[in-house]
């Protein structure tokens, strides 16, 4: 198992420069700020911009609404299909990114001594399940006459959230444990995302769809339990050595 934490010459704190820090602190203490107020000024400006802000973008109009018939879409009529399509698009994007996150994790573990004692075959399984989930949502979106290639606003937001995860998983200097922590963040969000989608499908009266999603959630539950367990074991071993 790789060692996540090593003792060394970390220079970022103040203890590395006991004399200089005294001088810095002393000067800062006697030098007043050049403008009065506090961080509320930032909040105020943000609020002004929020008040005048546009939206990130829109949910594309499903072809059903443009005239094409769809049984599933009929059930959505009278409700708010755009909210549901937005969340479907979000799940699709997250699962598709999930495949790439697992690709990076598999590479990281494969490069670690003894695969960091993470069963690679299980990671491959998880990766393939993320892919299946992506295909499932893709088919569902198509079945209601929407476009699975479009990026919905929630998908866009999830993409921004995932940027940090991708950075951690692909940085050659991060450890397997660092990457497992990133994956845990992803799986926690993924897990909740599926629960949300199942609830929405049920409320929309789409029981078949909700059943398919339940199966995906069961697999996601396994991902979450395993990633959480591996991460915990690795941190404990790194901290207390057993």
């Amino acid at each position: 198992m790789d060692k996540t934490t090593v003792l060394g010459k970390n220079r970022s704190g103040i203890d590395i420069s006991p004399i200089d820090i005294k001088e810095m602190m002393a000067l800062a203490k006697v030098t007043p700020a050049s403008s009065s107020g506090d961080e509320q000024a930032i909040a105020q400006m943000r609020q002004e911009y929020i008040a005048g802000a546009d939206v990130l973008g829109s949910v594309p109009l499903p072809s059903t609404l443009k005239g094409m018939a769809s049984t599933a879409m009929e059930k959505l009529m009278g409700k708010s299909p755009e909210g549901f399509i937005d969340k479907l698009g979000c799940r699709l994007a997250f699962e598709r990114t999930g495949v790439r996150l697992y690709d990076a994790l598999i590479t990281k573990c494969s490069a670690a001594p003894m695969g960091a004692h993470i069963p690679l075959d299980r990671l491959h399984e998880f990766r393939n399940e993320e892919f299946q989930h992506f295909k499932l949502v893709e088919n569902v979106i198509r079945s209601i006459g929407a476009d699975p290639t479009a990026q919905t606003p929630s998908a866009d937001v999830d993409g921004v959230i995932s940027l940090g995860l991708i950075q951690v998983l692909t940085d050659p200097r991060t450890s397997v444990a660092h990457c497992l922590e990133a994956m845990l963040t992803a799986e926690l969000a993924d897990n909740d995302g599926w629960r949300m989608l199942i609830m929405l499908a049920e409320k929309m009266g789409m029981e078949d769809m909700a059943r398919d999603f339940q199966q995906a959630l069961r697999e996601e539950d396994e991902h979450l339990v395993s990633i959480r367990q591996w991460f915990k074991e690795m941190v404990i071993k790194d901290t207390v050595g057993t």
Partner: peptide, 15 residues
């Protein structure tokens, strides 16, 4: 001025 606004009352402190 944005530079005034972001640093309103700001005094650096270690940490």
């Amino acid at each position: 001025s944005p530079t005034d606004m972001v640093a309103a009352g700001y005094e650096w402190f270690a940490g």
